[in-house]
Nucleic acid binder design. Structure first.
Lengths: 207, 207
DNA sequence: GACGTTACCTAGCACCTAGTAGGTAGTAGC
DNA sequence: GCTACTACCTACTAGGTGCTAGGTAACGTC
């Protein structure tokens, strides 16, 4: 009664497609449990693979995390560019200069509108943002750079609006993050876009 | 060559003292790795006991978490009351009515000033706040109630300041949370109290 | 000095963790 | 149809997970 050594019932996918599937499954799971609470087993299960099968694609758990972050940033840059009607913006925080004709208030509104449509992604970033405060977290440097760059972009755009662009940039970012958390906690009693517009009214009042 | 079955070299502490030690160690570790990333072993090590020794005091991992949260809330209520010069405020969010003569702006300032002195505690709450967005998180209900109550207290106080107290309450909370995260990420280039005063100037401008 | 309480221990259970070594089979190019 | 590649597997390691059962010794009370 020998058991056949190798019985395949799972699908074999081309690498790119499998990778995309892995990125999405991982994003959901990190949003749910954070990176410290993430297990390779869970990701593998959700993709219909074994753990070594998963590791074949991402190398290690840390590798998986950075892959997810890069994947999300690429996706976000594309979508934000589309929503702002800009052609080939590489990334609002990744690239250098911003295309002309983008004003800060409209950009923030676009960001918020986009986020309002993808709560799971927002949650992913909210959880990682907090977790990665610890210097030992594998995404620590990534999030530090991300915050710095976002602030720089905001501040550059804020020069047209106020005499204290850095302060405004920080306030905008803080308000966005904070309102998002409230919204994630009770989405039904909390309209993110409306809350942001109310806040923007104040933050962009003539100063 | 029989080994003596039971050799004690560790200190034996009265329960209350040991509990306090456990609460503090746990708070630090959760701030570092979140609750999902917390291990009973780490807590036990830091307190100089074994895992079952630790479990003797807290029952289970979930029990440990709620104990820490209750401990922190009690501590915070006491300290905030002192800073506001109020006698026996049970807790700004736990109790019902607020003592008269407390105005919202001063209360927020007191909160921020206090938080600026205990970054590790702020980080503890920031991490748990995000983690506990997941309904399966053991602190989910706790943080939902906490947010709701804080908003209610803020809104009640905001009635004296604006025609839209709920909106202001949400904005204040969002701004505080957001600025705190920025501050935690780079404390040296980021004065929390100053940042808050700048923001408060705007949020409390006549509306 | 005996007695009950309690702070804390050892031993062990059933299970999960990330990661490795080495093999198998589906696929694409010739 | 052969070959090279690669997507994915089985089997395993070494260690960590929360938690339980049951015992031991330090303590307060009488």
């Amino acid at each position: 009664m020998t058991v056949p050594a190798y019985r395949r019932e799972r699908a074999r996918l081309p690498a790119a497609q499998r990778r995309r599937q892995i990125m999405e499954a991982t994003a959901e799971l990190i949003a749910e449990r954070g990176f410290w609470g993430l297990s390779m087993q869970d990701v593998a299960d959700r993709c219909g693979l074994t753990v070594p099968g998963l590791l074949h694609h991402v190398g290690s758990k840390d590798g998986l995390l950075v892959a997810v972050l890069e994947h999300r940033d690429a996706e976000d840059a594309r979508s934000l560019a589309a929503q702002l009607g800009i052609g080939d913006l590489t990334a609002p925080w990744a690239g250098g200069a911003l295309p002309p004709g983008v004003d800060l208030r409209r950009m923030c509104a676009a960001l918020v509108r986009r986020n309002a449509g993808q709560p799971e992604i927002v949650r992913l970033f909210a959880v990682l943002e907090a977790e990665s405060l610890a210097p030992s977290h594998p995404a620590h440097d990534y999030f530090a750079a991300r915050q710095e760059h976002t602030l720089a972009v905001f501040a550059a755009l804020a020069k047209d609006v106020t005499a204290e662009p850095h302060a405004l940039a920080r306030q905008l970012m803080a308000m966005m993050d904070g309102l998002q958390i409230q919204w994630l906690r009770s989405p039904q009693t909390n309209d993110l876009v409306q809350a942001w517009e109310d806040a923007a009214e104040l933050l962009f009042a003539d100063r």
